[in-house]
Design a binder for these strands. Sequence first.
DNA 1: AGCTCTGGCTTGTTTGTACAAGTTCGCCTA
DNA 2: TAGGCGAACTTGTACAAACAAGCCAGAGCT
Lengths: 245, 245
Amino acid sequence: MARYEQIASDLRDAIVRGGYPIGAQLPSEAELALRYSAARGTVRQAVALLAAEGLVGSRQGARRIVLGSERSQSFAELHSFAQWARSMGYRASGTVLSSQRRPCSPSEAVRLSLEPGEEVLDVLRLRRLDGEPVLVERTVYAGWIAPAVERLDPGCESVTQELYESVGLVFAYGEHLIDAVAAGSEDARLLGVRRGSPLLRQRRVTTTQEGRPVESSDDRYRAGSVTFSIRNSTAANPLVRRAGD
Amino acid sequence: MARYEQIASDLRDAIVRGGYPIGAQLPSEAELALRYSAARGTVRQAVALLAAEGLVGSRQGARRIVLGSERSQSFAELHSFAQWARSMGYRASGTVLSSQRRPCSPSEAVRLSLEPGEEVLDVLRLRRLDGEPVLVERTVYAGWIAPAVERLDPGCESVTQELYESVGLVFAYGEHLIDAVAAGSEDARLLGVRRGSPLLRQRRVTTTQEGRPVESSDDRYRAGSVTFSIRNSTAANPLVRRAGD
DNA sequence: AGCTCTGGCTTGTTTGTACAAGTTCGCCTA
DNA sequence: TAGGCGAACTTGTACAAACAAGCCAGAGCT
């Protein structure tokens, strides 16, 4: 673990534990540098990490301010339903309802950087939190990873983790589109809600470290079961609003 | 404009214009430093900016990779419906349907850091894109900014911009919670949809540069009109999934 | 042909220095 | 008392240097 990560982690703990309540000022960079016997540049990297997490804000000339005190989750917990559920103290389970190979559609070819007509693996999964059905996941895997996915146990908890352990596949980047849709008849049946009732939809494309697309997924959460949360600032602005399709 | 921002802007333009297509390698830091006659540290600040925007990814030892080529919008465009609409080429309009002072509820007192029972301003607005009703906005303003809000023109396009010009108020930080809800009868009537149909809800709290909360808002978008978009990576992870209320 | 290994390239981390720019607060003055 | 001024403090930007760690392609070997 790098020195600046240690310092960031130490400060984050202090904030989460209430040592620096919301609205309080953080010590100056010079003071932190002295306290941790590090150069000012190293301390700046540490607080930049906290700023990216939305925990602290800063303005030139003034002390840094604590903006929030909730620990933000890791990348893995955003991409893996099971890992997220575990970290929240829920028991996650899942079932593969169908799984079949087929040639990819033109739009999928673009999203996954495939040749038109190349084979993909189409998987439908139902996910549960503490036994309650919460999420319908329709995932399209690129052909080159399909064999490894097909080898997975149908009741497998964490696909992400299994793929890492079996073939060393690491998800590294993701793009996510979030909107609301009405439940179709299949969604309604699986989630146990009425047709037309609101669902939170997350469409995502995930790629490896090399930027190679692995999967494209359409996840639909039962309303009330999940909320997405973001902190942004004039400096860091990850969330973007787009016009509907 | 800082040197590293110039470099970032230059590289971003090149990426957006297709000079570096998705999947391509960026020049090495040393080469960029030479090209721009800047120190390597300065170049690193520039590419860190692009990485935060999700445009490029990096791994130690390998060249940086272009991951996306869409320009992400500014903070203002996320917080201000009007400024976002304008940048997307839409014509935005809005109407204040009601506006009244009342004592704040206990939960609002916490969210806006107010004394229990302190006065707040409650505003209901309907927003349109090219004439079409798209968004119902229920905003609660802290008492100290209420007079300035009440002085605004009821048909005012951009509240954010007007507040900046009239009292110099700058929104600097925001927290956003995104989920899906069914349209209530008021929502349905205003947006011209059926009761119970899906809406995309964005609840947000916005604060000033000093970390002082200004407004708390519940915005509901008609399904299909707006999508939120995010890019994340193992390094930068702004988006968080949370359990429902 | 296929494999390993190594050397050079590239990004990651840390330190040190210097100056610019903005904030804060006390002091002085009108 | 109210306002203006300035000094001290704090964050932002930029440069330079050095080493660590990981990647990659080409040389050489089997």
